[in-house]
Design a protein around this nucleic acid. Sequence first.
DNA 1: TTTAGGG
DNA 2: CCCTAAA
Length: 596
Amino acid sequence: MVRKRLGYSSRGHRIPTMPRVPNSARGKRSTRRKKDENDDMCAMDLLATVAGKLLADQDNSSSVPNTSAAKAKKRKSVKEEHFDEIPPLKNVAMEKDVGSGSVSAFPRQAKNCLAENSSTRNGADTVLESLTVKSNMLAKIPECGSYGIHHAGSSSSAEPEQVHQAEPKVSRRQADGHPVAYGIFNSVDVDGKPPALVSSDSSSCVPLSSHDKEHQTSSLYRGVVQYTADREDDENSSGCTHPSTIESKGCKPQYLGNHRIRKLLASKVRKAARNKICGGIPSKKICGGLSKKASGTSFAMEGQNKSCEAENYHVKLRIKSFNIPELFIKVPENATIGSLKRAVMDVVNSIMEGGLRVGVLLQGKDIQDDNKTLCQAGICHDKKLNNIDFTLECEREREPPSGVIIQEQMDFLTTDMVEPLARMKCEEPFPEADVGDDSQQPRAPYRSRSLSDLYSVHCPVQMASQDTTASSQAIVPVSPAPSDVGALAIVPLCKSKGSEVGQRRMRRPFTVGEVEALVGAVEQLGTGRWRAVKTLAFDSIDHRTYVDLKDKWKTLVHTASISPQQRRGQPVPQELLDRVLLAQAYWSQQQQQARL
DNA sequence: TTTAGGG
DNA sequence: CCCTAAA
């Protein structure tokens, strides 16, 4: 494989808006060590992984996962917070300051903002929605029968072009949250033995979709398999003539971001530095040819009536194309096509080297016994061969989804293998007791809403696709309604135990509902008591640490201070921003007084 | 472990 | 979001 040394420092660059792409090792922040650790590695992650791999391969110094002993979350030991020492803003400040119309004491620019003006323009994210690699892969497989299976009409039109939905939709499929499997071309192990690849011509097409993360979905691997009868007896199972190769040509970025290839590369290095190597790339299904796709895909069996007992018959397997969805690549507009190709190449290469294994599904059933013959497995010419699928799975053990799984609406040719939908865990109800029942503070109306309830909704989609692009705005419905937390961040399924250690956490933009909860909590508790805020309003939301909340508050304050035109991401209701400024001013003052 | 800030 | 110095 071609490996390039990336000459970037391992630190100093980040990919802030890289949509759901954990790209670097994560620090050891105890609070998040828990569940977050399970957040997996997804799409973009690959980039980082790749880098990590590259570096690791070269340095040989990569096997040092900073495995932090999975410490049990000891949160409950949190000291009793005295939430009422100081009158919550809502109870006091609002009356004093706001009530009298002296709100003017607070920054007002926000007031002038048009809440509606959500024009976020940003255009620089290029989403490689799906990399379609076509290749011919012929594999000879010892078989008892001889038959040919053809997948017609898809040679060049195999690209499962996803539907592009422009309208905001809550139910989008996203591929990255899924256990993603990436296409491998050089190893389709059909019978558990070394793959026998005969040839592979390829052409790849890398559709780039601009900020339209909306349709991030994509069919995963969609392999068009073509079996060709081969009666030659000369070869046995190992007829690997030439390794398949992937050649990228015709890559045509339709929309190049205006920033950072540097960041991307940096992230790779960064990743590498953290010794994070391929995380778990869960398995995804590759649909083998037979689907009832309009294209007339089908398996044509031209078998001779050979009995399964017959020996030495070979089957040529031809996979015309695999789809590798959701690769995120950001490159500056002035980047060269060559650099783009290289970036894509790096990812693809790493994917292929990432230790993936192929699974075979017949009629939807996973055939695990590698020793079983095709015939025994039921892949005989005399049988109804109408549903063979291949899956690419991460070599790492696959674990059951720990958290939430995202449903992906993949454009599979055949039966789909959509991961079950999981539900955001919503354990305990809002811990009111923790907030000090003894207190008489009438915080009732201001009590922060715990988001647990909000999160308890079924979320069929993952909304990790946000970024600050305009497109993302359309994705998440924004409304002041608390229930609006609808857009939930869901944890992708992929992960593999030790491998995700050190993975940068997936970006999960705060939803309006979360923001509201945060604001409410801060109004009560003030700034500077993040641990309490966390307990109060996000106690059951594992992926939000108090540091996250603190950071979010910081950004909220900033956001509220700038003009709407300068804001990005899902717009936050002006009302909330106003409250943010109010609370910030109030508590800042409180802190100052406290010091004096 | 939390906070507070810079990156 | 990450990373860390301080507390």
